[in-house]
Design a protein around this nucleic acid. Structure first.
Lengths: 218, 218
DNA sequence: CCTACCGATCGGTAGG
DNA sequence: CCTACCGATCGGTAGG
């Protein structure tokens, strides 16, 4: 009866499931995410939810994809207007800290930090997806470290892998201090640590991703 | 019929449950740890297991306590023979890295790294226990940082909280790289990062905790 | 420490 | 997308 495409409606339903799923999973974990809870929250039947994914593992994989989109939107894309190399690296780290410190994106904080420890002892497609996205992010950071070295913005003897390892450590320490220990100073500590590692101050959170030239600024 | 004290037997049974529980929880998580699985693995009935703890939460708390003992034995106590201040700090960090890098202590790696992200969004006694033990460990490290500063072994303007934050980050980065990404170079990276933060090389893993003076060495 | 049991919920299927 | 259902397992209790 409805003139609207049922496929479009199905797509929207699926999107709603996945969006709520990533929120639930950020709190309860990917394994603690249940089809029944998801169905109840969305006013659907369990089989209505499951039909979009085939199995719980299919649902988990869709949620990991959605989490990657959230991370891309909240971190990677916020540095889009900056030049490759050190400026991009500083903008990425600043956005990363803002994302990890914030309460407004996902209720349980960074999905990947939680999924990493939850799945590091398992095998299978979900673990592989989490690992793959972590690797992509590290490669992204390393690429800009190398560009910064080539441009003379970082010392010539910089060990790119080591630097990315240590930056990642500060992000993980921020998650730990902010969410487990509820330390409000954690973001400042991470910011200071990363700035020292990079030899340059990080841009302030509010202006992390200027889309135009600084001439437009105050 | 048995002349042995049934209380002593009950204590041994409880210890066996808790020891296996911490191993299971290091892999499956504290929430993924189930009474039924524990009972099956130990050849007991579920109620036989549950009787020792009253509830799943009681079991979880006992497992957290056991994990603290494992950490104390594998890390803190390995530095017992060193002098307070910088030598202790270096020995603690070296033992910490060895523990995080190893596969021989718990099958799922460091219990607390996993429990921290699993429980940071929950409330209740289990979360409080995990948080408390993390805090105690950080205070322990900070104490030796301060002693090192007072002894002139670290610069006078050292920010002890900041240094502990950054050391923790390297430990977390090691867990992430070693267990999720299966990077065999992770321990070396953490070792290098911590050595730079402390301005001194870490003692080698095998001699992390000499009980006597170096004169006894080779 | 056991057997026997409880209601609730799990992931998933049949059939529409 | 639904109802109706499946066997398995969850944490926990009664009673011994």
């Amino acid at each position: 009866m409805s003139p609207k495409s049922s496929r479009a409606e199905a797509r929207r339903t699926r999107a709603a499931i996945v969006e709520h799923g990533v929120r639930l999973a950020s709190v309860e974990g990917l394994e603690g995410l249940t089809i029944g809870r998801l169905a109840a929250d969305l006013g659907m039947s369990k089989s209505g939810v499951l039909g979009h994914f085939g199995s719980k593992e299919g649902l988990q994989l869709a949620v990991v994809d959605e989490a990657a989109e959230v991370f891309g939107r909240e971190v990677a894309q916020r540095a889009d207007g900056t030049s490759p190399g050190l400026p991009r690296l500083l903008a990425l780290c600043s956005a990363w800290i803002t994302y990890l410190d914030g309460d407004d994106v996902l209720p349980g904080g960074c999905f990947f930090t939680a999924a990493a420890t939850e799945f590091d002892d398992r095998e299978g497609p979900v673990r592989d997806a989490v690992t793959g996205l972590s690797t992509v992010w590290q490669h992204d950071l390393r690429r800009h470290v190398r560009l910064a070295v080539e441009a003379g913005e970082l010392p010539g003897d910089t060990d790119a892998d080591q630097l990315v390892f240590e930056l990642t450590g500060q992000a993980l320490a921020l998650h730990h201090a902010r969410r487990l220990l509820r330390d409000a100073a954690a973001a400042d500590r991470a910011r200071r640590a990363m700035a020292r590692l990079l030899g340059h101050a990080l841009p302030s959170p509010d202006r992390a991703a200027p889309r135009r030239t600084p001439a437009a600024g105050r």
